[in-house]
Amino acid sequence: MLAKRIIPCLDVKGGRVVKGVNFVGLRDAGDPVESAQRYSEGGADEITFLDITASHEERRNLFDLVDRAASTIAVPLTVGGGVRERQDVNELLHAGADKVSINSAAVADPSFVGEMAEAYGSQAIVVAIDAKRVPDVEGRWTVYTHGGRRDTGLDAIAWAKQVADLGAGEILLTSMDRDGTRDGYDLVLTRAVVDAVPIPVVASGGVGTLEHVYEGLASAGADAALAASIFHDGHYTVAEVKRYLLGQGVCVRPPEAD
C-alpha cells in the first residue's frame, strides 16, 4: 500500500535557511543541506526547498545548494520559488532536483505547465497553489500569486483541475488563511481539491500539532503533509510524527530506526 508522505519544507534565500532550524547539535543552523540531511535521516519521505530569493545573482546560490543537497540526501527533492521559465526548470532538474514547483508562472501562462510536463515528464512538475477563502462565500477560494500578495480571482478548485489536465504531476496546496497560524490545515479546501483532481495533493499551511497532520492526511485525504515550523522549532521530529500516525492507523513509511 502506498504510504502517505511527510515532507519538511525549508525556506531558503541566497542558499541559506531563512528561519533557523532548531536541531540539537547542528553545526550550521543556516545550512539547508545539513538540515535536509537530518530530516531525511529522521525519516522524511521527501524534502522541499522553497526559494524566496529576489535577485538573479542569488539564484546561483540556489543551484549550488540543490546540487549539494542532491549529492547528500537519498530521498526525493522538490524545489520551488521564482521558477519563471524553462531555463529555471532545466537548471534545477539538472542540478539534481527531482521535482520543480511552479506557481505564479503557471497562472501567468497555463501552457507553461503542459510544456514543462511534456519536456520533463509529469512526475517532475508540481504546481503550487496558494489559495485563500473568499470572505462570506462558503466553499470558495481564489488563487493568490507573488507570495500571496496578488489575488488572481481564479477559482482554486477549477485551477487545480486545469493544471491536472495540463499535465502537472502533483499539487502543492497552501491555505493562505492558515499559513503560519498553527491552527491546522484548511481541511475543507484540502478535501475539495483532493476530490477534484486525479493527481496527488500535498497539504500545506497551518500545521501546529500531530493531530493536524493526521487530519490533513486522514480526514482531508491529502497524499502528503508538508510542514515547516513544527519541525524547525524542534517541537516534533519527523519520526515522532510518523509514530503518532502509525498509532492512528495511517499508512506511513516507518522511521528506519524502529
Binding site: L2, R5, D45, Q123, E170, P200
Partner: peptide, 12 residues
C-alpha cells in the same frame, strides 16, 4: 478508494 496514477511515493 480510487488510486492515483502515476504511482508516486513509498511502497513496500
Amino acid at each position: 478508494v480510487r488510486l492515483k496514477v502515476p504511482h508516486i511515493g513509498w511502497n513496500q
